[in-house]
């Protein structure tokens, strides 16, 4: 890291520290009632207490589980469907209008449908999360497959590569930057929908923890849950970015 980069990093940490200090100040001055707004000190204490009793860890694990399963299901289905649609011009022409109708549909609108059909179950949560998270992945995959350099297909033809080899060695790696970007986007969607499903269906997870804490006016616990959710979103996104950098090292070489 060079000097300028270090300075920028320090500045960003200072800004974050400033926000926390302002939060503490507002809490200490009782600008907002402590019933609703705990200071960062109390939120931190609640976080430590929650983890030492083991409650919070199990809730965090519940949310991570919902998120991971839904996201993985969305990724597998999204890449498979996207590849199928994106690699054929005819499929794109047939399916695109239906996709355009389904895509802007708010996922929250299908939750009642999912509950009616699947009940307040883990299966319902998996379906809702996967349904919401599939769009960024599938649309990115379609775009990635449609944008493969035609010259590469000619190279593949002159080498007499099999259809499977063309998909695995040409189309998929070429679409990978798009696919990974879509997967990163849908990670956030999966987290949001995990929390929504936990709140609506009372499934074990941070969503439920946050809801129950709010109802019991345990604001410190509430904030501990919110902070944990923020950290989950941040850290999973960083993890995917790291994988992305690793897989797309060849793009860095181009710069």
């Amino acid at each position: 890291m060079n000097r300028a980069a270090i300075l920028w990093r320090v500045a960003s940490i200072l800004v974050a520290a400033g926000f926390i200090a302002a939060w503490q100040l507002i809490a200490n001055l009782h600008l907002v009632s402590p019933v609703f707004l705990p200071g960062p000190d109390r939120a931190w204490a609640a976080l430590v207490r929650g983890f030492s009793s083991g409650d919070l860890a199990s809730k965090l694990f519940g949310t991570l589980e919902h998120m991971a399963y839904g996201w993985l299901a969305a990724s597998i289905a999204g890449i498979a469907l996207g590849a199928l649609i994106g690699s054929s011009r005819m499929m794109r022409a047939y399916v695109a209008p239906s996709l355009e109708f389904l895509r802007p549909l708010p996922v929250s609108a299908i939750i009642p449908v999912a509950i009616a059909m699947l009940g307040l179950t883990q299966g319902m949560a998996l379906f809702v999360i996967a349904f919401g998270a599939i769009w960024p992945i599938m649309l990115a995959t379609i775009h990635g497959f449609a944008a493969v350099e035609p010259r590469l297909y000619e190279v593949a033809r002159s080498l007499q590569m099999s259809r499977a080899a063309i998909i695995g060695k040409i189309a998929l790696p070429s679409a990978l930057p798009d696919i990974l970007a879509g997967m990163r986007l849908s990670l956030t969607v999966a987290l949001i929908l995990s929390v929504v499903c936990e709140i609506l269906a009372g499934l074990d997870g941070l969503g439920q923890w946050v809801l129950l804490s709010a109802r019991a006016f345990r604001s410190a616990d509430l904030f501990a849950g919110v902070i944990l959710l923020g950290a989950t979103g941040y850290l999973t996104s960083i993890a995917v970015s790291l994988v992305e950098q690793r897989l797309l090292a060849w793009q860095a070489a181009a710069r």
């Binding site: 590469l152 190279v155 790696p173």
Partner: peptide, 13 residues
């Protein structure tokens, strides 16, 4: 066959 546009005919990854 050797194509003119080598930049497009090679796999960048």
């Amino acid at each position: 066959i050797v194509f003119q546009d080598y930049g497009k005919a090679l796999l960048p990854w």
